[in-house]
Simulated assay, not measured.
Amino acid sequence: MVTGLDWASVVGFFGTACIIGAYAYLTLKDKPNPFVLHGTNLAGAALLTVSLLVHTNWPSLVLEGFWAAIAIYGLIKAIRTGRKGQEREA
């Protein structure tokens, strides 16, 4: 039996795309902008959390909570240092 995707699964796929895109950006860019990197990761975690609240998977929901917390920390650190990827820490 083949069923279509519901709205929560579509939202989850967009979240997955954000996180994969952020990882690819980090890997491919010599001096990644932390606002782009962590902002995209935070958006991905938020979208996946919405999906997981509908289709509950507790281990994945906990993972997204940590993923979001790390992204928020990264954004706060970037705001405090004013770092936008132009310089790289040693």
Rank of each mutant, 00 (worst) to 15 (best):
Y23E: 02
N33W: 01
G44Y: 14
T81D: 05
H55S: 10
V62H: 11
I70F: 07
G82E: 01
L48D: 03
D30M: 09
W67D: 04
H38I: 03
G74D: 04
H38E: 07
N33Q: 11
V62C: 10
V54T: 10
V50Q: 04
L28I: 02
R88I: 05
L63P: 00
A8G: 10
K29N: 08
Y73R: 14
A69Y: 06
S9A: 14
L28S: 01
L75P: 02
K29I: 03
R88W: 06
K77A: 13
A8I: 12
C18N: 01
D30L: 14
Y23V: 09
P59M: 13
N57I: 09
D30H: 10
H55I: 09
L63A: 13
F66N: 11
I79Q: 04
A17T: 08
R83L: 05
G15T: 12
G82I: 01
A24L: 13
V54W: 02
P59H: 14
F13R: 09
M1E: 13
V54I: 07
Q86A: 13
R83H: 05
R83Y: 01
K84W: 08
A17R: 05
K77N: 09
H38R: 07
A68L: 09
A17F: 11
S9E: 15
V2N: 13
E89V: 00
F13T: 06
G21A: 00
S51R: 09
H55D: 08
T56C: 03
K31R: 15
W7V: 14
I70K: 06
M1Q: 15
D30S: 10
L61A: 11
F13E: 06
G74H: 01
G15R: 12
P32R: 15
T49L: 14
W58A: 10
G74W: 07
G12R: 09
L52Y: 06
R83D: 03
G15F: 08
G65D: 07
L42Y: 09
L75E: 03
A43K: 04
G4Y: 14
L52C: 05
I76H: 08
I72E: 05
F13L: 07
L53I: 03
I76G: 06
I20Q: 15
G44R: 11
A78T: 06
N57L: 14
S60E: 14
I79A: 05
L63R: 13
S51T: 04
R88V: 02
L63C: 07
N57H: 11
A90T: 01
V50H: 05
W67P: 00
L53F: 08
L48I: 12
L75V: 08
L53Y: 08
I20M: 15
G82L: 06
R83G: 01
T56N: 10
G4W: 10
I72Y: 05
A71D: 03
M1F: 10
L48V: 11
K77G: 05
C18I: 02
G12Y: 06
T16I: 15
S60H: 13
R83C: 00
